[in-house]
Design a binder for these strands. Structure first.
Lengths: 182, 182
DNA sequence: TGGTACATGTAACATGTTACATGATTAG
DNA sequence: CTAATCATGTAACATGTTACATGTACCA
């Protein structure tokens, strides 16, 4: 068994492929929707990972369909690699927050500019929170429809988004006057 | 004026160089301390950025001292580039949180493993929160010593850390039983 | 005098970003 | 018929990670 060392991005693609064959396009779309908020990935990365996983036998390309659509199917090797990844991965999160750099170097930033940047970011986060809350409500609403039930795992990641955005907004609102101006 | 397009990492180094000449080693150390929690960077990156900024004339290498220490000084061009960066940069944060991937794919993760991973991460975050709170207390304590006063900008980034960790812990504690086990 | 921390740097590789090239299908 | 969307892929480059090679100065 030649161990193919999965990265988190490739692993996620395998995760999605557990639900059935998908094309690169499908995967880009679905990944951006379902993990894009806490694991960014781009279209070209997806195609790159697909081609290397295909070479390694973790997935198998099917016949090309209309518009050259090419569905990939996960193989047993792929399923094993995914399981192995789930079992091994324990990495910490990476946060890279340019705004905090601007704040840290605040003494070099014109007061006006600093205040504007803060306001702009605060608005972004308020919008993001609203989006998350909306999605969460929609999901919770599913509970009350007999045949459907929400995915508790997806719900947990959404709740993370809500908590995170709330914390960020809180932080904005408690910034001292020197920083947020006014 | 040939515009040298700074990235956030290089810009941060310039930011630190505003306080006086420093060597690569100094910069690695100081950067990890002061921005490492929200902007990771490695030793080899620092040397790489220094050498390209040196070529571009944003910084100037001084004489080698003991142990081959080579201090870099920011130039006027560098100061301008830094100011320009502060004025241009408005990027959003990137969060890459492997744990959330594991949670999202929870249906494929053995219950036991999922619960363990959650516990482990919760502990990490509890520790991190404690660290942040300690540093914050130390900083606040400075306020009561006549001659010294804490840097409000550094304090704000620390407060962000505290808020963030509190939110994460909160999230852990509200996870449903299906996910956190027990 | 020997280990640890200091200090510089490179090499090799993995990952991430941006832009482009090409074409098919569908909806208006 | 034509614009938008779907769909695949590559190229070029920027950034990030890990490991190694080399040597110095300090201090116990």
């Amino acid at each position: 068994m030649t161990e193919f060392k999965l990265n988190a991005t490739a692993a996620s693609l395998l995760g999605f492929l557990h639900d059935g064959p998908m094309t690169g396009w499908d995967l880009v779309t679905i990944a951006q929707e379902r993990i894009g908020d806490f694991w960014s990935l781009s279209q070209s990365q997806v195609y790159r990972e697909l081609s290397s996983m295909s070479v390694a036998g973790l997935i198998k390309a099917g016949e090309r369909g209309p518009r050259d659509r090419r569905p990939f199917t996960i193989t047993d090797v792929g399923r094993a690699a995914f399981a192995e990844w789930l079992n091994r991965e324990t990495g910490e999160e990476t946060i890279r927050f340019p705004l905090l750099l601007i704040v840290l170097f605040g003494q070099h930033v014109p007061k006006q500019r600093l205040a504007e940047v803060i306001i702009e970011h605060r608005e972004r986060h308020a919008r993001q929170l609203a989006d998350y809350e909306k999605s969460l409500e929609d999901m919770v609403a599913l509970e009350h429809i007999p045949t459907s039930q929400p995915d508790p795992y997806a719900m947990a990641t959404l709740r993370f988004g809500v908590k995170y955005e709330q914390a960020v907004l809180d932080w904005f609102d408690e910034l001292p006057e020197v920083i947020r101006g006014r």
